[in-house]
């Protein structure tokens, strides 16, 4: 068969390409897990911070912006979003965040929840 002879076949180098990407993912995740636990969260609407809250205090904060609603929860040092009425639900699927620098973005409502690590030194920060 003429075309099976010319067919492009899987090569060893393909594994190298896959390994490069796996290494990149590993590095990013490693970076993420080395980040300190945050202690405050900032809720921004349209890029400006509207609330700064402590992560140590549990609470439920409804946010309404640009015609969309969502509820930010703080529980046991983690923040997460529920009841978002945006169509894609990215913010809900992001899950629980607790590390400094991590954030949840709801693109439809232009709301972002971001964890800050500055302020009083917490145990994780001192340890490593």
């Amino acid at each position: 068969m003429e075309h099976s002879k010319k067919q492009v076949l899987f090569r060893r180098g393909d594994w190298v390409a896959i390994l490069i990407v796996v290494a990149l993912i590993g590095a990013l995740w490693g970076f993420y897990f080395r980040a300190e636990k945050g202690n405050t969260i900032e809720i921004s609407v349209n890029g400006t911070v509207v609330h700064t809250l402590s992560l140590k205090q549990n609470g439920v904060y409804p946010v309404e912006a640009n015609g969309h609603r969502l509820i930010v929860h703080v529980e046991g040092g983690e923040a997460f979003v529920t009841d978002a009425d945006c169509p894609d639900k990215v913010c809900e699927h992001t899950g629980k965040i607790s590390r400094a620098g991590a954030s949840i973005v709801c693109s439809a409502a232009h709301v972002s929840v971001r964890i800050k690590g500055e302020g009083d030194a917490d145990v994780d920060f001192v340890a490593g």
């Binding site: 990149l24 993912i25 990013l28």
Partner: peptide
């Protein structure tokens, strides 16, 4: 926001694989 890089990029890259 820059924070999405930290949380979402590894998931996206894994899916891209």
């Amino acid at each position: 926001d820059t924070g999405v890089l930290l949380t979402y990029l590894p998931i996206l890259l894994l899916a891209g694989l």
